[in-house]
């Protein structure tokens, strides 16, 4: 009986997720001198990996770096918001939650293009910053690493806020009062009580933000320049423009592997038990 229930979705995931992943791995071992028209020879050649890494390690490191900074920014911005909704909003709680999710429905491409307008050289924001001398007379925000990281932060912030909210919502505020009775100041109370209780949300949120951000290329394409290109841009153009399937497949696997190593390392450090909150 349970097998009948899980079989349809399970088969779908195996045929269209697991098999493609295996196919992608096989593609990464193809002879790179072939082409889509003539077909590729399966040579089991591991050379695609060092070749792809040698050519594109700056984009790979940049992707992981941008994603890490964006994840930290999401945590810094998302924590006060999730805390405020869970513990301070009272009867406005549901309305604020809706306000966090609602921007999702305006397509994320359109919202990213809106950031292009907001950050543009002739926009109000750049004008203000130049006026306040926080930006040079010809300083710009668009087409800088700042714009790309800001775009990533913006697009993945709800993925941080929702799990943080889920773990803070169950938080009993009397625990903080108890900490106060035991002579803990606000900082000690936050560090010793709030933070450990929010840990599952922090772990889930950082993973849900970091993983898609590291693979994203829309923000780098719309808000950046070729000098801010991420690994996703390279994979995308290798598959769809240069039609160089073997090295594109190798890069996809390198990205997966880098994410896997970082995730496992991170979970071992913080304790995998924290992940129970997600599943």
């Amino acid at each position: 009986m349970p097998y009948l229930l899980i079989l349809p979705a399970g088969l779908w995931l195996i045929v269209f997720f697991v098999v493609p992943a295996v196919q992608l791995f096989a593609t990464s071992l193809y002879d790179p001198s072939g082409s889509l028209a003539t077909g590729y020879a399966m040579t089991g050649d591991l050379g695609n990996y060092p070749r792809a890494l040698g050519d594109y390690w700056p984009q790979l490191l940049r992707s992981l770096g941008y994603a890490a900074v964006a994840t930290l920014a999401c945590l810094a911005l998302g924590f006060p918001l999730a805390y405020a909704i869970a513990l301070k909003a009272g009867r406005w709680r549901n309305m604020l939650l809706v306000a966090v999710i609602a921007p999702f429905f305006t397509s994320f491409l359109i919202r990213t293009l809106a950031w292009k307008t907001i950050l543009s050289d002739t926009g109000v924001l750049v004008g203000l910053l130049r006026h306040a001398h926080l930006l040079g007379a010809d300083g710009r925000l668009l087409a800088t690493p700042f714009a790309v990281v800001a775009g990533l932060t913006y697009n993945f912030l709800p993925f941080m806020v929702l799990p943080l909210y889920a773990s803070l919502e169950r938080f009993d505020r009397r625990l903080l009062e108890a900490a106060g009775d035991l002579y803990a100041g606000p900082v000690a109370g936050f560090r010793r009580v709030t933070l450990p209780l929010a840990a599952p949300g922090i772990v889930a949120g950082t993973l849900l933000t970091f993983i898609p951000a590291a693979g994203d290329y829309v923000n780098a394409q719309l808000l950046g320049t070729p000098r801010t290109a991420m690994i996703g841009n390279v994979i995308d153009s290798a598959f769809l423009v240069r039609l160089d399937y073997p090295s594109a497949a190798a890069l996809s696997f390198v990205l997966m592997f880098a994410i896997l190593v970082l995730t496992v390392g991170y979970l071992r450090r913080v304790g995998a038990g924290a992940l129970d909150a997600v599943s």
Binding site: A21, Q23, L24, M256
Partner: peptide, 11 residues
């Protein structure tokens, strides 16, 4: 937990 670019390209 898989980046979209990997899922899309493997399909």
């Amino acid at each position: 937990a898989t980046p979209e670019v990997v899922m899309g390209s493997s399909l």
